[in-house]
Amino acid sequence: MNELKQIVEALLIATPEPLTEARFHACLGENETKLPLAEIVEGLTADYEKSERAYFIKEVAGGYQIVTRAEFEPYIKGLFSKSGKLRLSQAALETLAIVSYKQPVTRNDIESIRGVSSDSSLRTLLDRKLLEIRGREDGPGRALLYRTSIEFLQYFGLNSVKDLPRLREVEDILAEDEEDLI
């Protein structure tokens, strides 16, 4: 178990994307004992808590990754020229919300919901790899189809798109509006 914990720790530090069970097993040699990744991560998490590390293991995008604890943000910011992570604009967040619930979508789908041109938001989101292009629509014009990426899940700390907050139904919104009026 101890050796496996060390292996997982090394993989977590080096991995370019969240470490999944499948990837972990592929990294192990033929003769190595295999334990469920979740179990090993649990052991590591307990170790980290005991020894008060500056980081912890987070379950994200269907795998695990090491992230720093919130209290170190002020120091980490100093590493980056743009004072840490860049925040997304309201327009970019709206565009991202529409894509994440309705994917795959075309630019036209997004713009007909938002009622404004969404070209520059889409470009920002593609540049930041939060969205990706996944093929084209079959219909006339063969418009590009957009989807959310693994980076999107990481950015919002989600395990999968199924974990997104539920989109309220129109009926709920109306019911609430009526209450407001009374």
């Binding site: 530090i13 370019p16 994307e17 987070k58 990754q65 090491i66 992230v67 720093t68 604890r69 919130a70 209290e71 170190f72 943000e73 980490i76 980056f80 743009k82 840490g84 992570k85 860049l86 925040r87 997304l88 309201q90 967040l93 709206e94 991202l96 919300a97 619930y101 540049d127 930041r128 790899k129 939060l130 980076e151 999107f152 990481q154 950015y155 919002f156 700390g157 989600l158 997104l164 907050p165 989109l167 309220r168």
Partner: peptide, 25 residues
């Protein structure tokens, strides 16, 4: 839903990991 996204962004913001593409293009 955008409000919820902004909240998730805020709560993830202080956590850093070694894949900077998403927050620093």
């Amino acid at each position: 839903a955008t409000t919820a996204f902004a909240a998730m962004e805020r709560s993830e913001r202080p956590h850093y990991y070694n894949i900077p593409a998403a927050w620093s293009p």
